[in-house]
């Protein structure tokens, strides 16, 4: 079981690294918003793997909170990006 968790965490880590590359490269603000949202989701996923490994439910409110904040952040950023993009 430990091997499975290690493999899952490695895959999630590589995914986050790839999303981070997209976050840094852009090219538009909207690409960065999409990449950032994926990184937030991967944070939730990694916390879920932690919960599964230790069988410890006390961190589950964290998952809900991060998912909520990620949604509000991406939504607000997408609304604001329209105005920013017009400057380009």
């Amino acid at each position: 079981m430990g091997v499975v968790f290690a493999l899952v965490l490695v895959m999630v880590g590589v995914s986050a690294a790839l999303a981070l590359v997209r976050l840094l490269r852009g090219p538009t603000t909207l690409d960065r918003i999409v990449a950032l949202d994926v990184i937030v989701v991967l944070t939730v996923v990694a916390a879920g793997v932690y919960v599964a490994y230790y069988r410890d439910g006390s961190n589950i409110p964290l998952l809900a909170a991060v998912a909520l904040v990620g949604f509000v952040g991406s939504t607000a950023a997408a609304r604001l990006a329209v105005r920013r993009e017009r400057h380009r």
Binding site: M11, V12, V14
Partner: peptide, 14 residues
């Protein structure tokens, strides 16, 4: 399976 789809999605995003 979930981690694999995360990875595939990230490769696509890249």
């Amino acid at each position: 399976l979930g981690a694999l789809s995360c990875l595939l999605g990230a490769i696509g995003l890249m």
